[in-house]
């Protein structure tokens, strides 16, 4: 597994798509990849797999890629580890990138783990910070570990490619550059459907799961301080004005004011939006673990000593019933 490091050049980004739609995380990684590629003076390449996905290459170029490695085949219709791993592993062996980034989504993590074992290289998990030592061409990927108690920089000195999965929403996308284009390199996959071990029989949309908090970039969340349905409606109005998703503490869910899908925290979902507005939430540890990595946290609470103010960046010490409607109106007018 010892490799000649100098044979490996270029920065790659895995462009995840679902049903012909690009996921945001791929575009975010192209922004990060652009920076790394410019520093290393190499091409930035997207890796795009699927069935009838060729038209998506346009967006990948406009988001910053110089080249796209494309494999378009019906066998790639659904994500499956065995097919995607084979395809990506073959590309890596043939074209030898030095850095390869994947979104830390369910499928991105699954794929990256399998590819790393297939080509025998290092893989840093759930990266949130990236840099590169240009002289040594060494990728520095930093990540939280031990339940967020510590940050660690992971290095991979002697192997290539240097791979990492990167958390969605930690990098800002670049504005699309209309008309920007590049080279498409089409490859094929040599796998037959009948030789495969797994089949995706169907994808079932969770009808109850009308809310997708994990992917929301703005969340307005209600706690027991909003008291009842009427208070919740007030919070909902602010959320609608901000184009935000609605979250809630467990006490609100248990009072039957909203469904469990909205619950943020240890026994609900873990969220990392750009903005999290907590209204009438005290900030119990079981709630905090579900939202403390949000980028900007604003809390509204009438108790100045409420623990939520320790986790928040900004706090309004006030009666929610006064401030929230005012904020809704002010934002509509702004």
């Amino acid at each position: 597994m010892r490799v000649n490091i100098d044979d490996y050049r270029g920065v790659w980004v895995y462009i995840e798509q679902k049903k012909g739609q690009l996921l945001d995380v791929g575009l975010e990684l192209l922004a990060a990849g652009r920076d790394l590629a410019d520093k290393l003076e190499v091409d930035l390449c997207g890796v795009l797999l699927g069935e009838e996905v060729k038209s998506l290459t346009k967006d990948v170029f406009e988001a910053g890629a110089d080249k796209v490695y494309l494999i378009d085949d019906p066998v790639l219709h659904y994500y499956r580890t065995e097919t995607y791993m084979t395809a990506v592993g073959d590309l890596v062996r043939k074209y030898k990138p030095e850095i390869f980034l994947y979104g830390a989504t369910s499928n991105g993590k699954d794929l990256a783990s399998a590819v790393a074992t297939d080509v025998l290289c290092g893989l840093t998990a759930d990266t949130t910070l990236m840099d590169v030592d240009v002289e040594k061409r060494l990728f520095e990927a930093s990540r939280p570990a031990f339940g967020g108690n510590i940050m660690a920089t992971i290095l991979c000195k002697k192997h290539r490619p240097q791979m990492a999965t990167v958390r969605p929403k930690v990098i800002k996308r670049l504005p699309l550059q209309a008309g920007r284009t590049g080279e498409v390199i089409e490859e094929t996959i040599n796998v037959k459907e009948e030789d495969l071990q797994t089949k995706v029989l169907k994808i079932v949309k969770d009808a109850k799961k009308a809310v997708n908090l994990e992917e929301a970039s703005v969340i307005v969340a209600a706690g027991k301080g909003i008291k009842d349905e009427k208070g919740f409606a007030m919070v909902r109005e602010l959320a609608e004005t901000l184009n935000a998703s609605l979250g809630a503490s467990r006490d609100v869910v248990e009072a039957g004011i909203c469904g469990h899908d909205h619950q943020v925290g240890q026994t609900g979902v873990t969220v990392t939006p750009k903005v999290y507005i907590a209204i009438g939430i005290s900030g119990a540890i079981q709630h905090l673990v579900g939202m403390q990595n949000s980028e900007l946290i604003i809390a509204i609470n009438n108790d100045r000593e409420a623990p939520i103010f320790q986790a928040a960046h900004y706090g309004i010490v006030a009666d929610a019933f006064t401030v929230v409607p005012m904020l809704t109106t002010a934002f509509k007018e702004a």
Binding site: I150, A152, T153, K157, H159
Partner: peptide, 15 residues
């Protein structure tokens, strides 16, 4: 292939 380099505690919120 991977090694753990620098480690540091994440910035604690000052409130």
């Amino acid at each position: 292939p991977t090694i753990v380099g620098k480690m540091w505690p994440p910035e604690k919120s000052k409130g």
